[in-house]
Amino acid sequence: MSELNENQQTTTNRRTFLKAGVATASMGLIPGVNLIGLSQAAITDGSAASDKQRWGMLIDTNKCESGCTACVDACNKEFNIKPSKKPSQTVQFIRKVTVRHKLTKVETSLPLMCQHCENPPCVDVCPTGASMKRADGIVKVDMHRCIGCRYCMMACPYKARSFIHEEVTEQMAYAPRGKGSVDSCNLCVHRIDENRENPRNPACVDACNSKGHKAMIFGDINDLKSNLNKALKKHQSRELRSELGLNTGVRYRGI
């Protein structure tokens, strides 16, 4: 009898242990599941991105006002990016730069962000495929697969990527970021995925339009009816560091 009790007790203990183990394991999985859920939250119909579309942008530097940082501010608000304790470690998805032409000395102000290359060096060098290009041309980072080697940052010709040096708090549900991962502009993919047929503009473009500058046109390069397609056909534009042959999705006019 006592032996039976002992066996029962052992079984009970084992069951308790297994339950506790499963509960503990679940606790460990919850953050990951949550993050996956958060990252997919914006995709409304679950369909995959299509290569029939290619999202891009034309930036008219003639309209970009020097000193205006509306696009940068809007981006920081959209992704809740806050300054780091060390300024050099602050995350940036978009920045304003002023450039001077070496021959004419003409100065121009322009926003600089991920150029969403057709042949992105960051994607080529990423050892795990965390740095990836969607079928619709958006280059982004899968933070769950990112090991934080920063090789993509070394490879990016535009220095468009940032490393998350510290714990991130108050993240936006549609754009989770993780300490130890790399991140960059994704053309506000959460807005695009809400309605790929007629997406909202990225936050920077909206902000530029709100200011009345209208220096940024966003859209589907492949769509003959899109404003972007029409503008690209009408105006001569260039890609930055064109010698690299990356065929960027972001183009500039006026430089």
């Binding site: 080529d124 060098v125 990423c126 050892p127 795990t128 495929g129 697969r145 090991i147 934080g148 993780g178």
Partner: peptide, 25 residues
């Protein structure tokens, strides 16, 4: 020194053959 050293298994499970860093691993 990796930002996420505990993700290192992805180097093998989602190997990117165009990455010289992956080949080094």
């Amino acid at each position: 020194d990796l930002g996420n050293p505990f993700h290192i298994d992805y180097m093998f499970t989602s190997f990117n053959e165009t990455s010289i860093f992956a080949w080094n691993i």
